[in-house]
Write a protein that binds this DNA or RNA. Structure first.
Lengths: 171, 171
DNA sequence: TCAAACGTGTTGAGGGCTCAACTATTCCTA
DNA sequence: TAGGAATAGTTGAGCCCTCAACACGTTTGA
């Protein structure tokens, strides 16, 4: 019943896993030692910095930074301790909260950016041609569109993943 | 000085980040609720299951599963508690340790695999044509080859510690 | 031969994340 | 316009991971 991965899919999937783990490990290390923050925090600062007024509702920030509400709440608490973000009440909705990037936070981001971009370049883009970069971007767009759809469509039946080798595909 | 990302690169990079966070979030959730293990542990079980004798040296297992030694050590401790893996001394090198997949561990993997594969398919491969799958696999191969090289031939010019490099907006 | 260097694996502290439960506010509708 | 449902955000427990330090076995070279 299970639609196991064929050889091409298996190969691509293992490449995906390897690239992701290695790339993120290196990015995290670079950001942590070079700028004292994990990548998730960097992303939060970036999104705030791109917003006019450098201020966003928590929930909107969560969406932009691909974060859960809970994760963002913990993260902003930490970022507040560091003095990089400030919480403010939301005038139009008293349930809400606003997160505002402080000048110190902006400075931390400006200081972190060059080293981070260099690492992304060194690990990823330096390996790829312009055509490959474009192709990769299109593939990601396709996947994102698909994920957004499947998020609304229901019915997840049980099904399998990597073949446990010894059981053979049967497993 | 900084070689910022151009528009295509920026677009691809943001797609990469979005796909990765969403995909892993869904995979982790599926595996956790469906099989009671995080993806990192699933990967460890897979690598062991693929080895004749279902046994590997810790360091080799770490490499295969894209794990640090420390992470693997913690993980195997946990997997031992669950009864899915057993540690054994290594005869040829008394520093070493072997990790062996137990029958219970194999059963857990066989039970977990269908649901996991289905999720990978639903979230990723169902969105892509065979050509896209192949193209993606080649791109990952390229990146992996590049990463392996840059790992040995260092000379990261900017140095591991970046001085908060004053300048430039961007982010 | 034996000490220094190296390799292998473990440990514990600390931090980030998920999950579920919770408070507070706003929306919806009868 | 009250009451329930939905939304916004927070919190704490528990788990996983990283980092640095450690223990111990092996290799090397003077």
């Amino acid at each position: 019943m299970t639609r196991w991965l064929d050889d091409d899919e298996q190969h691509t999937w293992r490449g995906f896993l390897a690239v992701n783990r290695m790339l993120f490990e290196r990015l995290e290390r670079q950001l942590q030692t070079g700028a004292g923050m994990p990548h998730a925090y960097y992303e939060i600062l970036v999104r705030l910095s791109e917003t006019p007024g450098r201020t966003l509702r928590m929930s909107e920030l969560a969406t932009n930074a691909h974060s859960s509400r809970s994760r963002l709440s913990h993260a902003v608490a930490r970022l507040e301790e560091m003095g990089w973000v400030r919480r403010k009440p939301c005038a139009s909705d008293r349930r809400g909260a606003l997160a505002e990037l402080t000048d110190e936070g902006m400075a931390a981001l400006v200081a972190a950016a060059p080293g981070h971009v260099e690492e992304v370049r060194a690990q990823l883009f330096d390996a790829l041609s312009a055509e490959q970069v474009a192709a990769l971007g299109e593939i990601y767009d396709t996947v994102l569109a698909h994920m957004a759809l499947s998020h609304m469509a229901p019915s997840r039946t049980a099904g399998p993943h990597m073949t446990p080798a010894e059981t053979n595909a049967g497993a």
